[in-house]
Amino acid sequence: MHLGILTGGGDVPGLNAAIKAVTEQAAARGWSVTGLRRGWAGPLNIDPDNPETVNDWTLALTPDVVRDVDRAGGTFLHTSRTKPSATAVKDLPQHLRGKFAGEAEDKKVDCTDHVLRVLEHLKLDVLVAIGGDDTLSYASRLHAEGAPTMCIPKTMDNDVFGTDYCIGFSTCVNRGVELITRLRSPADSHERVMVVEMFGRYSGESALITGYLAGVDRILIAEVPFDSDKVARLLAEDRARNPQHYAVIVVSEGAHFEGGSIVESGPADAYGHRKLGGIGQDVGEVIKRHGINVMNQNLAYLLRAGMPDAMDLMVGRNFGTMAVQLLDEGKRGLMMAIEDGRYTTQPADISTKGRRLVDVDMFYDPDQYRARIKRVEGLPMFLK
């Protein structure tokens, strides 16, 4: 069997562990593996009539090639937010421009027929796609159109529908707790309110769990609009009660004021997402109006940087291993998943069926803007 593998969307720690596991498990069965570089940009940029493009956009993977890749974060195959089914004409590789001659430069066109041709040209029996719901939704489309795929979920937001856990989440939380603990020093020294912004476009789980474990004073999540003046008053009370005279609030990047909307900037990417970030600054400005000095810190890429923790090494490796084991059993069109603490699978298109959000009633107090775990007994280790 000949497998292809790619990583799409934002990088997270643990991707390389999954790539390594797929490669080693395939090699043990006498199969070959080809890595497609830069996510879906790989097959989009390959011209079957030009061998040089194949060399530029693919990498033959063997146990020797992947021997030590899991010691580093990110993805050594590189990644992109390319969407072959909605690529602007101006962003097409030269060999595809002629097909859409006369179209407006900004018009988005569907090149899925080209991607299918490339996968056939590479003689790939199955493509393993590692990514969030955007990457995996396109993989499920390819499967529906006759190119078998297997999907592995990753995202620091932990919001892919159909699984309780995605590669990258544990490292995000671990790193977030560590950084917030360090940030207490300047907040304490200057007696300020520290506003920490974290990932979470639609789901506030990474901010909620990080804030819960770091013991912060307040948490704003994407699922619950907030009263900015009330938040400022609560933080003023938190700061006054603290003998060290400081307070800390964690803000999900998708959080928004009551009656407001998510803070975004710049043009939309191929999946329709604009760049998030800035709500932490806005919250800080409101707090300042209440006469309190503020420090703002957006953790951003610091949460992605560096090697994965043990949990993401384990889940990345196990998802990759499980994908190959299931292929060996003749199964196709599945997404690796964890449900109630156990490894399982879902249909490849599960990520298109809904959106995984925080269970506010179970895990959050929307009146006090704090984590509130109603009942721990019976929950899986990472809650849900």
Rank of each mutant, 00 (worst) to 15 (best):
M314L: 11
M314H: 12
M314R: 14
M314G: 02
V315F: 12
V315S: 04
V315W: 08
V315Q: 06
V315C: 04
G316H: 11
G316Y: 03
R317S: 14
R317Y: 15
R317F: 13
R317Q: 06
N318G: 07
N318L: 13
N318Y: 09
N318H: 10
N318K: 09
F319V: 12
F319D: 07
F319W: 03
F319R: 08
F319G: 03
T321E: 11
M322K: 12
M322C: 05
M322F: 04
M322Y: 06
M322E: 13
A323D: 15
A323W: 06
A323P: 11
A323G: 11
V324W: 00
Q325T: 12
L326E: 15
L326D: 02
L326H: 15
L326Q: 14
L327R: 13
L327A: 07
L327Q: 13
D328C: 03
D328L: 02
E329L: 07
E329W: 03
K331R: 15
K331E: 14
K331W: 05
K331I: 01
R332M: 10
R332N: 07
R332F: 05
R332H: 10
R332Q: 11
R332I: 02
R332V: 05
G333H: 11
L334H: 08
M335F: 09
M335W: 12
M336A: 14
M336P: 06
M336C: 12
M336Q: 13
M336V: 14
A337G: 03
A337I: 01
I338G: 04
I338L: 09
E339N: 13
E339A: 09
D340T: 02
D340N: 15
D340S: 12
D340Y: 09
D340A: 13
D340G: 12
G341Y: 07
G341L: 09
G341I: 01
R342F: 14
R342Y: 08
R342A: 15
R342E: 14
Y343G: 04
Y343S: 05
Y343K: 03
T344D: 00
T344P: 00
T344K: 00
T345P: 13
T345C: 06
Q346P: 07
Q346A: 14
Q346E: 13
Q346M: 11
Q346K: 13
Q346D: 10
P347F: 10
P347W: 06
P347E: 10
A348F: 05
A348K: 01
D349W: 03
D349H: 11
I350F: 01
I350C: 00
I350D: 01
I350W: 01
S351C: 15
S351D: 08
S351G: 12
T352W: 04
K353H: 12
K353S: 06
K353Q: 10
K353V: 11
K353R: 15
G354F: 10
G354V: 11
R355G: 01
R355I: 05
R355N: 07
R356C: 04
R356G: 02
R356P: 01
L357T: 14
V358S: 02
V358H: 04
V358D: 01
V358R: 07
D359S: 14
D359A: 11
V360Q: 00
D361V: 05
D361T: 05
D361K: 12
D361Y: 14
M362H: 07
M362F: 10
M362S: 09
M362R: 13
D365M: 01
D365L: 02
D365T: 07
P366S: 07
P366K: 03
P366C: 05
P366V: 01
P366D: 04
D367V: 07
D367L: 06
D367T: 04
Q368C: 01
Y369T: 05
Y369N: 03
